[in-house]
Design a protein around this nucleic acid. Structure first.
Length: 802
DNA sequence: AGCACGCCGACT
DNA sequence: GTCGGCGTGCTC
């Protein structure tokens, strides 16, 4: 028997199955989807069995046997193996990367070189004294002790051996259990106990008082007050037995709870739910676009649709943007489905994620909620997949494999012939266009569930404010609104639209902006450390006291960060309690949730933050939302700038007035006539969609064309440009008539980490040659260009074209 | 990717 | 003479 194995080596010539012989004893357990350890050249690596066959086309003497089987059960089903293959092809990634991304990080192999002593008598004294009585030492430890050269010498002479140990990163958590086989034996033991063994007697009495068949050892020690030695002596005397039992790590239960009862649906919600249920009953793949304004109760539709498929004995996956994965959201699902829900969020440790994965794999839960990667939840009978806030760009992974969770969800739904729900108040143009063409089925929720009015939106022209002598960050209208809310003890959300715009240091005499020495990017000012940082490469330097160009002292930071906004806010309303949420205040584990929780509990009046606050907040006392600079995201060199701005403004406006109290929104801008801002006033998606589609058609951008970006980077600017031209020409010569190639041009960030970057944009409506051509290009690159220091990357349907 | 093999410069 | 630098080539 031959197993086809994809080995854990991400390199071009290795990206295919390798044949290995299956030892006869393992033939009956060998299955695709198992992880194995195999010899590969001079070393040993981990790999995945992707296929089984009787014969190999290769010479018998070339085939090596599998060294070890890692799993008892396959970790990847036939479905997921097929998915990985599809994903690798579509996104032009290594198959090994596509396989690895589907499993929790804890299951990725860890390699460690270990030295074993064979002939201890031939070691020199210094080496021997370092080893002590150890037979095996990691090479890492030997390197730290500066003994690497000796090890190499001994290895050549056969005095020591070096091999690679392959381990899983995180293990299953185990606890020690104590079993009482027979209570009578305890009594006998107590009678026969040595009179000096006071503690043992005490423990026996405790055990008799707490009759049980098995109990955690730690619990006995805690509650009986005896020490571990005492327990051990009972184990040694075989009065009790002990064993290691695998357990799941305990997860913190959410603080907020949901009633757990289905809510009464509005007519619109009912129509949507019925359509989904019917589709589900028919066992066909259908993708629904659930377009519901903020507060229209999309989540309730999800919950009841999930309930429907659970009753059919099927499973469901719910994807949400990481930032929306708040306790508030997850508590609602846990309240409804209780123990059947696994929540996969970034706050979990690697071990906890692994546990949740196993609970899904074993079929102990039926619903998985999580960010992007939860789309790979190892269910085997899926009945529904949901992407909430489907327009979010976080659904696209921006490193290899560059998959989009929406595409993966639809692929899986096709496999199981079940529905997909894409939900959003502001769908991506791609999805809405597909819904308009009938590829997706459109479901609309146009009214708020609790019949609240939409918030009133006021757009303030900041140029007028400036003319009127108001030089602060807050317009008169917003300042007034803030003061009113403080008096009425209502809450305020202030959004600082920082995308593509942060505080930088500028010389007021010569106009020089301090830039990163490695990247063509201005450095960002950080107040806490009084330093300038590059957000791309991590370079950090002190704030200069004079201009590096003209030595003027008139150099100071410019732009608007959240810290500066907080200071200005303090000047405006010193009595207000403010919670600031940005990268600086949310970088510790759980900080994001804690800040939101505090705000929900009313511990602050104002929540000030970046885009991360635009989603998922559902607090009844928020009645005012202020957007401090709405147009900063409009000036990005990106065809999606208007779409992103409209989405952000609509999402954040939806935070106001979600309960009984009416909401108000103030949008500050220097560009009030822009259609993305103008139309967000009425929060009316369809007119915006039509306007933006018009523009996309004129400019030939998605969704009218598909886009693929090929990027070339090199330390030498001339070589970067040269290869970019060669590569672009290569593609252009091979594409069909209808496709357009733009470039090469310097990337928006033309130098990053000391590498010069060029890119070309391929636009196409239908291009069957695309994948083959890109694969050919990749072959050229890997076989010759890469050796010359070129780095090339291919990104299909990028979320932005930087 | 990583590891071995192999062929040329500066050291005990 | 040998240690060790990194070019080249292969991995079932």
């Amino acid at each position: 028997m031959i197993a086809e194995v994809i080995v854990d080596v991400a390199a071009y010539p290795i990206d295919r199955p390798f044949d290995y012989a299956v030892p006869i004893d393992w033939e009956h357990v060998m299955e695709p989807g198992l992880r194995v350890k195999v010899p590969f050249g001079p070393r040993k690596v981990a790999g995945y069995v992707t296929g089984i066959k009787e014969e190999s086309e290769l010479d018998h003497n070339k085939i090596k046997p599998i060294a070890e089987i890692i799993d008892l059960e396959p970790v990847l089903s036939a479905e997921l193996l097929a998915l990985s293959k599809w994903m690798a092809t579509e996104t032009i990634a290594y198959e090994i990367d596509a396989l690895q991304v589907m499993l929790p990080a804890a299951m990725r192999a860890k390699y460690e070189k270990i030295m074993t002593v064979i002939k201890p008598e031939e070691l020199d004294d210094a080496f021997r004294s370092f080893l002590g009585n150890r037979q095996q030492v990691t090479l890492k430890a030997l390197q730290d002790a500066n003994l690497l050269n000796e090890v190499k010498k001994y290895n050549k002479l056969g005095i020591v051996e070096i091999d690679t140990a392959i381990q899983q990163k995180t293990k299953m958590k185990k606890v020690r259990m104590i079993h009482v086989p027979d209570a009578k034996q305890l009594e006998t033991a107590l009678e026969e106990a040595h009179p000096n063994a006071k503690k043992q007697q005490e423990l026996l009495r405790w055990l008799l008082l707490h009759p049980t068949e098995s109990i955690e050892a730690s619990k006995i020690l805690d509650e009986s007050g005896v020490t571990a030695t005492v327990l051990k002596s009972l184990v040694d005397k075989e009065i009790v037995e002990q064993s290691q039992v695998e357990v799941y790590r305990e997860l913190e239960s959410p603080k907020m709870q949901d009633s757990g009862k289905p809510e009464q649906l509005t007519d619109e919600q009912q129509v949507a739910l019925s359509a989904i249920e019917q589709s589900s009953n028919k066992n066909i793949q259908e993708t629904f676009l659930l377009h519901g304004i903020t507060g229209s109760g999309k989540t309730e539709v999800y919950l009841q649709a999930i309930d429907h498929v659970l009753k059919q004995g099927k499973e469901a996956i719910v994807l949400v943007p990481e930032i929306a994965l708040t306790p508030q959201m997850t508590a609602r699902f846990k309240g409804r489905f209780g123990e059947l829900v696994a929540v996969l969020h970034s706050g979990l440790s690697a071990g906890e994620k692994y546990d949740e994965w196993r609970r899904i794999h074993r079929g102990e839960v039926k619903v998985a909620i999580g960010a992007r990667s939860a789309v790979f939840a190892p269910f085997s009978n899926l009945g529904l997949l949901i992407l909430d806030e489907e327009h979010e760009t976080t659904y696209k992974q921006e490193e290899s494999p560059r998959y989009h969770a929406r595409d993966v969800a639809i692929w899986r739904a096709n496999y199981y012939q079940c529905p997909v729900i894409l939900g959003s108040a502001t769908p991506s143009l791609e999805s809405y266009a597909r819904a308009s063409k009938g590829v997706y089925s459109l479901l609309t929720l146009s009214k708020r569930a609790k019949n609240q009015a939409l918030p009133s939106v006021e757009v303030v022209d900041m140029r007028e404010e400036l003319k009127a002598g108001n030089r602060s960050m807050f317009s008169l209208a917003l300042a007034e609104g803030i003061r009113e809310r403080l008096v009425r003890k209502e809450q305020i959300v202030l959004l600082l639209n920082k995308r593509g715009f942060s505080s930088f240091v500028l010389c007021r005499d010569c106009g020089t902006v301090v830039e990163c020495p490695n990247c063509d990017i201005s450095l960002t000012y950080h107040r806490a450390s009084e330093s300038l940082k590059c957000h791309y490469c991590g370079h950090e330097e002190r704030v200069p006291s004079e201009c590096p160009e003209c030595t003027s002292e008139h150099i100071r930071f410019f732009g608007t960060g959240t810290q500066k906004a907080q200071e200005e806010l303090y000047k405006l309303v010193p009595e207000a309690r403010v919670i600031r949420m940005d990268i600086d205040t949310t970088n510790t584990k759980g900080a994001h949730e804690r800040l939101l929780y505090d705000f929900g509990e009313g511990k602050a009046d104002i929540l000030l933050g970046t885009q991360m606050i635009a989603k998922g907040l559902d607090f009844p006392r928020i009645t005012l939302v202020g957007v401090l600079a709405a147009d900063t995201s409009l000036h990005l060199a990106d065809f999606r700038a208007a779409e992103k701005t409209f989405q952000l403004l609509t999402q954040v406006s939806g935070r106001a007035g979600r309960d009984q109290l009416p909401g108000e929104v103030v949008i500050q801008t220097y560009d009030p006539e822009h259609y993305a801002i103008e139309l967000s006033k009425t929060q009316n998606y369809v007119p915006f969609y039509e306007m933006e589609m018009d523009r996309r058609r004129q400019l030939g951008y998605p969704p009218y064309y598909y886009v693929t970006v090929v990027q070339f980077s090199h330390e030498d600017v001339l070589k970067a440009a040269d290869y970019a031209h060669k590569g672009t020409e290569f593609i252009a010569e091979r594409l069909s008539q209808g496709s357009v190639i733009i470039g090469p041009t310097a990337a928006a960030i033309s130098r990053l980490n000391n590498r010069y970057r060029y890119q070309s944009l391929i636009k196409y409506k239908h291009e069957p040659a695309l994948i083959p051509v890109l694969q050919q290009l990749l072959k050229h690159y890997k076989t010759s260009w890469a050796k010359d220091g070129l780095v090339m990357s291919i990104n299909r349907e990028p979320t932005s074209i930087f």
